[in-house]
Design a protein around this nucleic acid. Sequence first.
DNA 1: CGATCTGTTGATGCTCATCAAATCCAGTGG
DNA 2: CCACTGGATTTGATGAGCATCAACAGATCG
Lengths: 247, 247
Amino acid sequence: MIETLLCRLENFQPLADEDRRVLQQALTPPVRMDRGEDVISEGERPEHVHLMIDGWACRYKLLADGQRHIMAYLMPGDLCDIHITLLNRMDHSIGILTRAHVAGIPRQALDHIYAHHPELTRALFWSTLVDEATLREWLVNEGHRPADQRLAHLFCELLVRARVAGLTENHCMELPLTQDELSDAMGLSTVHTNRVLQKLRREGLLTLRGRTLSVHDWQGLTEFADFDPLYLHLERSERMSDLLGGI
Amino acid sequence: MIETLLCRLENFQPLADEDRRVLQQALTPPVRMDRGEDVISEGERPEHVHLMIDGWACRYKLLADGQRHIMAYLMPGDLCDIHITLLNRMDHSIGILTRAHVAGIPRQALDHIYAHHPELTRALFWSTLVDEATLREWLVNEGHRPADQRLAHLFCELLVRARVAGLTENHCMELPLTQDELSDAMGLSTVHTNRVLQKLRREGLLTLRGRTLSVHDWQGLTEFADFDPLYLHLERSERMSDLLGGI
DNA sequence: CGATCTGTTGATGCTCATCAAATCCAGTGG
DNA sequence: CCACTGGATTTGATGAGCATCAACAGATCG
């Protein structure tokens, strides 16, 4: 799954073999984690950067009233928290959503990369900038789009990201999220999310059942959601071209 | 106003005189801009990083239906778009909100900094991580908080940021935003924003009139808004201590 | 096989958008 | 100095979108 990460980083620019090796060797062995556990919690001082090997996680914050807001989904190949070497304390938590394996890059190894591998450093920096761009799009999504478009837009994004990570078959992907977890990310109630999902299904755009997302009308979905993948900055990905062609 | 930037960067760690000089000398002379102009537009390939000398700007995207969503406010001392050196094309625009002066750091100068001034580079990287953290908080704000808390939270943030930039007097600051511009950031209609502002005023929390924000009950406001400034990562700022003490 | 989590359905009401019009204000030109 | 103008703020009325509460059906799992 380091392959997935490398593959993603190469959306910025091709990596030297040396850089690939350095990154690979920096990784600690994957740790098994279960749904409900935190990779790291708000307020903690992190010592590792974490990499999702398999399984899904999310960034989230808890509000004063106990509600959880999910700010990002992390799928296999995603780095969880590069920030962390530079920020003192986590301002949010990272929680596991499925059975998962998580590897780490020790702070020390990362410092070494920063000091001696400028190209790799830039690639990692690039990757956080993409995360930031994604965050901006989510902000637009929650701020301005009604519930149906909002969910549709999320599914577009997830399908593209999964595609680039090699996690799709045709227009289907494993999506191990409950409607509750979707709701906490979209700022909707579970009930409303449920009704919107039914509507998207009725309209022949997609179905979500048994942890599998199937997109039936990709073109229709992207148009409905006003989805423009520019913000994912994946222009270089070969796996993207057919999808993008369809947009 | 480079002072403000340096002062902000030193929230990460004190800068060497050498680094301060390098940054100062990298700046191009400020250019005068007017409300409505774009510093840079979506899709463009940027050649400078921009620094707000005076006046305000915002990051925004235009949606398919013509609505504008504001994703960040930029005040004097804020860098607009460091990303830019690494991302190919802007996935959003930066628009001027008041008469303003904007300086630039040429891409070339920035590359030089990246290559030869690791500490300064880290400080700049840190600064984008804070931007990202702010984005996450905005996401929570729009996703989960009702309109009154949402606006209150925004005002808390703006006051703290202005305070650190030396732009406040007591609990007042110049806030040159129309209710329309506030609405576009909060995902509310102008009408509703207006009513919420009246409510916050009636409750004695703050008044916003004639481009001036006056917070009358800081403690009450932060409690009402569920505001925790951790995400701004300003622990080192001396100017913050009195405000934070009040939280 | 019950216990628990997830998904589904119905009913009710609040928050907020929308439309429309009135007022206020700063700037501009006669 | 005043009339004019266009933008910003304010007010009222109406209705849509979505939250909330409650209950039930299905799935999953030890």
